[in-house]
Structure formats: structure tokens, C-alpha cells
Simulated scan of single mutants.
Amino acid sequence: MPASAASIAAARQRQWHALGMLCGLGLGLAPIAPEVCAALRALVGADAAALFWLDAQGRPEGFFHEDSPAEVQDLFLNEFERLFAGPDEVNVHTLARADGPRIGRLMAPDAQYLRSNSYNLLVRASGHRHTLDLRVEADGRTRAIVMLFRASGASFTADDAALLERSAGWLARAFERPIGNDCNQAGGPGGPLGHVVLDAAGQRPLYADETAAQLLRQSNLAGLGLHAAAGLVLPPDLPQRLGVAHAGAAARSAVPGGWLAASRLALHALAGGPAQHLLTLQLQRPLGVEVVRRVLALPLSPLQGDIALLAGLGHARADCHRLAGVSEAALKKHLRAIFAATGAADWEDLMQRLRR
């Protein structure tokens, strides 16, 4: 095999391995959306990728798009029902229905689609021309829609579609039970705290600092209306949307890169004035994703990477026989290579090095 072909094959295998590791964490697709989009774009060969996760009715709860302008994201998040849900629109909700093909519905679009708002205000407005779509199903329903885009040149082919369809099984694994004891917990570097002051009587937001505004913009949660506005205009039901309708409440929402954690605290009322509440926001990154990133940076074989990941996720050394399918003799050999690559002295040391 020529060197160039060999290097392409090795790079593609690495992307498959990364995709399998990330989806195997069982976090859902929102917290790993940036990594998943990057892997799929590289595997198939596209200019950009987007991932939409859906509620039980097949409506988009949120999304991650690698390069769409803020104005386009604002339209999708806040004007979906008005502009993109009509009978002539082929949108994310349409693609989520199980009565159509799982892969490639937009590869050869008809004239109706090319006249639609979905194409002209979203796809073309983002600088894209060709689209390859995939429906991700798990637990008996559609959980997500993947879209790959090319700006110009050759359209997507049947071979491209076959590559993307191969990823469907991995993507569905993201909705299965996590393989680690605590990979659904925050554990990576936490982001800065943002604050929103609420009017206690009406529970309406009065003020948000710049960190809170940035966190809300980056969360891509439907209905917040924050992307393209010249000034920050918070929705009056912001606490309810974030699941913190009452003082003392805490909740988190799955967003690109982790979870948007929200907590609510009642403040002391000033003399004679009404009490106010403080809403605190932070992006929490999953421990498992941080461990995967560290493992992928090591010079290990795919099997050795899988073994190292088990340590980083908190598994016992003995779990490797069942979860990685290796004998004790093979495990000792692989651990020697893993310890040499990481500088770890033993299994417990390896676990700590991959977590800190």
C-alpha cells in the first residue's frame, strides 16, 4: 500500500477509534458534539458538520454547528416554528421521521427543497451547497440528526453515505448506559461563573453579566433569542427554561461541550426593597471526555488506548479481562507499554494521571 494511502487509512482508523471511545461514554451526543462533528467531518471528507439532538416529539432541543453565522443560528433556535416548520419545509423534524430513508435524503434534493426557507435561510446562508444527512436512532426513536456540508465542488457520493451510515451504530451507543462509574459527572476543567439577577416577584431576569451572556449564547438552547440580538434581551421565563423556577433549585442542561449548570439563590432584601434572586451559571465539562482526550494524545495502540481509558474512567484492573477482552498475560504486556507512555507506576497511578 502506498505511504499516502497508508497514512490516510491510519488517520481514518484513529477517527473511528476516537468516535467509539466518545460515544461509549454514554453521555448522549450534546456534551460530545464538537468532537463528534470533527471526527465525522474528517472521516467522510466535508467542509463542516452539524449535530441536532431531539426531544421525544422529534423537535430540536439544541444543536452544534461548526461554522454557521450567529444570525443563522438565531433563526434556527428562535424562529423554527414560524419559518422552518411549514408543509413545504424539509427540516430536522422532517428528517427525524422514520418513514423516510435513514441516510442521504438531501443528497439529491428536489426543486421544492431548493426553494425552501430551510435551504435558503439556513444551509445556503451558511455558505453550503451540498448536504449529507443521517438519522440516529436509539431506544425506539430518533435521537439526533447529523448533517455534513460541502460548500462547492463535488456532491456527496454513495461511498460517502456508506461511511457516514457506518457511524450510526457508534452514535446510538452514546445513549446507552455509561461504561464508567462516574463519566457522567463533571470532572474536567470547569468554566468561569456567570450571574443573572432575577426579580423575585416576577422571576424575570433584570441583569446578566458578560460571562452569563456568553454561556447562554454558546448553549444553543431553543428559544433564548441571544445569538444575533444587538443587545442582550433575556427571555422572561429564563429560570423555567433552565429548570430553576424556585430558590434553592439546581439543574443542568446538555449543551455542546458538556452541561450548562444553573443554580438559584435568594438574596437578602435591601432595606424596604423587594428581595431578589441570583442565578449562577457554569459550563461543566464531563470527566470522561477529558480522559478520552488525554488517552488519544498518547502513543498507544487502539487496544492499549481502550485499556488506559478503563483506568481513567475508574474501573478496576480486573475489569480489563471482561471489558477489553484480554488475558492476564496480554494485559501485563499492554500495561508495560501504557506505563512507559504515561510514566505511571501502577494501575492506581495511571488512573490519577488520566484524571488530573
Score class of each variant (00 low, 15 high):
L260W: 00
S7D: 12
A48Y: 07
Q73S: 11
D67G: 03
L122P: 04
A154E: 13
R150G: 03
L267G: 06
V196P: 04
V255L: 07
A174N: 11
A340R: 14
R264Q: 11
D139G: 03
G243W: 03
L106N: 07
A201E: 12
R264C: 13
D88L: 13
T342K: 06
G24Y: 01
L51R: 11
T157K: 00
P256F: 07
V295D: 04
E176F: 03
F339D: 01
A230I: 05
A46L: 12
G273E: 14
R241L: 10
D74Q: 13
A337H: 09
R293L: 11
L313C: 08
A200T: 01
V136K: 02
S263E: 14
V295F: 08
A330Q: 14
R317W: 00
P109Q: 10
F339W: 10
S167T: 15
L260F: 00
P109C: 10
L19M: 03
P286Y: 01
S152W: 00
Y119G: 08
Q13Y: 00
I8A: 15
L106I: 03
H227F: 11
Q218K: 10
V72S: 09
A229E: 10
L313Q: 02
A316G: 04
E165G: 13
A56Y: 05
A329W: 02
A330F: 02
S152G: 02
C183H: 01
D55L: 08
N120W: 00
R135E: 08
M1S: 13
D88P: 00
H65I: 00
I103V: 15
C23F: 05
G343Y: 02
D55E: 09
L77E: 13
F339V: 02
R102P: 04
P239W: 07
P101M: 09
A42F: 12
A85T: 00
Y113F: 15
I103A: 11
G100S: 10
D139F: 04
R241C: 03
A48C: 10
R252Q: 15
D182F: 14
M21Q: 15
A33C: 11
Y113M: 02
A6G: 05
H65R: 01
R241Y: 01
A33S: 15
Q15A: 15
P2V: 02
L164I: 11
D47P: 09
R124L: 08
A138G: 02
L206C: 06
R252N: 10
R356E: 12
